[in-house]
């Protein structure tokens, strides 16, 4: 049973209006459990829309999405996934540990259990002494780590991330990528990750899904066989650079095919 199955999904906004947008057309995607896949593509290719369809925050116009063997709607009701956005989105009136406890409160866990799990998650993201702090006392990178801790607090099998490191500087970003890989390996979480950055996509993923805009569709799925135990040294391997080039060329093909200007994808 796959973790996520997207089956012939189309998403149209403003159907029947002059400003109709075909955000996604004929999307087929399967993600196996414990896999890490990235969605990459220029602005408007529908990667965030696809993520929101998996999260059941919006409904497909046609086709179906299933998560963990159930329809996406059911998976959302059962809270089978956690989500992290570009803005950490921590509640400023709650302490760090109460922020992590939020999904557990909504699941009806009792206080002791919640407290224990929050502490466990803080250990996992290597911020154990910050439980009683307020979010505004933490740096951007630390806040994102807390957001990830919150997303994984209920140990969901799936993690959905929409450019979570987009607002961070380059050094913090690389550090956070390594942390994310470590955390996901420790928890065997399936991850669907949306990004603008080619090196980020290659470093993190088992597969890179290349998308193109107008209308949004998948043009390429590139396997990244750099092995599981990736480290900082991986970034300097020839195979790493080769993969980055492969993804970049796939994106260039997208650009030529659509004759769009202004890719909006980072070569960093």
């Amino acid at each position: 049973m796959s973790a996520v199955t997207v089956n012939r999904v189309c998403k149209v906004f403003n159907a029947g209006n002059p400003n109709r947008v075909d955000a996604l057309v004929d999307i087929d995607l399967t993600v196996e459990p414990a896999q890490f896949i990235s969605l990459i593509g220029p602005s408007g290719c529908g990667k965030s829309t696809l993520l929101r369809l998996v999260a059941n925050l919006i409904d497909p116009t046609s086709g179906d999405v299933s998560v963990n063997g159930k329809p996406a709607a059911q998976a959302r009701l059962d809270q089978d996934y956690g989500m992290a956005f570009q803005q950490a989105g921590l509640f400023e009136w709650r302490t760090v540990e109460k922020n992590i406890e939020l999904p557990l409160e909504l699941k009806g866990w009792d206080k002791a259990k919640r407290r224990a799990r929050a502490q466990e998650m803080l250990e996992l993201v290597k911020l154990p002494e910050f439980g009683r702090h307020m979010p505004w006392q933490l740096s951007g990178g630390m806040q994102q780590r807390i957001a990830i801790a919150r997303a994984l607090a209920a140990h969901p099998p799936l993690l959905l991330m929409d450019e979570p490191f987009g607002a961070l500087d380059e050094m913090t970003r690389e550090h956070m990528q390594a942390e994310l890989l470590r955390i996901c390996a420790a928890t065997s979480t399936t991850v669907v990750f949306v990004t603008h950055s080619i090196p980020e996509a290659v470093y993190l993923s088992d597969r890179v899904v290349v998308m193109s805009p107008r209308p949004g569709r998948i043009t390429d799925v590139i396997d990244v066989d750099l092995g599981r135990g990736r480290t900082e040294d991986t970034r300097e391997q020839a195979a790493f650079y080769a993969k980055i080039t492969e993804v970049r060329e796939a994106l260039r093909r997208v650009e030529k095919a659509g004759a769009t200007s202004g890719l909006g994808v980072d070569d960093r």
Binding site: L57, R76, L77, Q79, Y81, M83, Q87, G89
Partner: peptide, 14 residues
């Protein structure tokens, strides 16, 4: 409330 926060609560099926 920021829309990201309301989306978060939606993802929790709250």
């Amino acid at each position: 409330a920021p829309p990201a926060a309301t989306e978060l609560m939606q993802s929790y099926a709250a």
